[in-house]
Amino acid sequence: MFGIPTHSIAIPATGEHFSCKDHEALLAAMVKLGRRGIPVGCLNGGCGVCKVRVLKGSVVATGPISRAHVSQEEADANITLACRTAPTSDLELEILGKMKKSFLAQCSKP
């Protein structure tokens, strides 16, 4: 098959997985497929909810990420934002951006 290589993205802790094209941002690929696993926010590197650790595989950055949410030390430890990260191989991810429900978000839920 011609075209762009596709990589398999796995989240071992939850068993979730989806496929992502080479150099396509992880979060955009997941959203496009209607899959879940990584919390979704601004998709533009600013809000930090999509924070992940790359456990296995190689990645490239697709744009700037907010230092308010990923420190240099964290970046050195393979922590990044999934909306600004693209795979160049199959990946395994750990989700760090806990979609911690705020007090308001819990309101009016049964």
């Binding site: 919390p39 926010g41 909810v49």
Partner: peptide, 8 residues
């Protein structure tokens, strides 16, 4: 959307 979770 991400009304209560995502902000800068």
């Amino acid at each position: 959307g991400s009304f209560t979770t995502a902000y800068t």
